[in-house]
């Protein structure tokens, strides 16, 4: 079986890419194929990249405070395109916003201080789930 494929992207205009890059590196070292789109991405760009690359998981990082706006658009687009790719979000997210994001369909939210091990485990589990669901379909 080929490696799990993850899209790592910076949604919105903020340039704080430290976390996204560290996570991308860690996922690579853990055996994932990682597509890194860089900064200043729109939800449309993220969805299109996920489609073209046929990824198993989408990971977006946002530190601008605009997470609710961008993520709700992202999730809406994914639904419209009938795409069943799990989404995880990382960044400076106020705690009360975590359930809001999950309600939108985000599978996991990683706050500052999340360990790489934890992120890798969650992403792997979500990728496995997705592949299994696809096999059955």
């Amino acid at each position: 079986m080929s490696n799990y494929k993850v899209l790592v992207s910076k949604l919105g205009l903020d340039g704080h890419d430290r976390g996204a890059k560290v996570v991308a590196r860690a996922l690579k070292d853990a055996g994932f194929d990682v597509i890194y789109t860089g900064i200043r991405q729109t939800p449309e760009q993220v969805v299109e990249a996920a489609i073209q690359e046929d990824v198993d998981v989408i990971g977006v990082s946002i530190l601008s405070g605009a997470h609710i706006h961008h993520v709700s658009r992202l999730m809406k687009l994914l639904r419209e395109r009938g795409l069943n790719v799990p989404v995880v979000v990382g960044g400076t997210i106020p705690i009360p916003d975590v359930p809001r994001l999950k309600q939108m369909g985000v599978r996991e939210v990683f706050l500052p201080g999340s360990s790489l091990k934890e992120i890798i485990n969650v992403v792997r589990r979500l990728a496995e789930e997705k592949r299994r669901a696809e096999q059955q379909a």
Partner: peptide
């Protein structure tokens, strides 16, 4: 269009 959702936040 790129500014959508970011105006006045930070």
């Amino acid at each position: 269009p790129m500014a959508s959702g970011e105006v006045g936040i930070c």
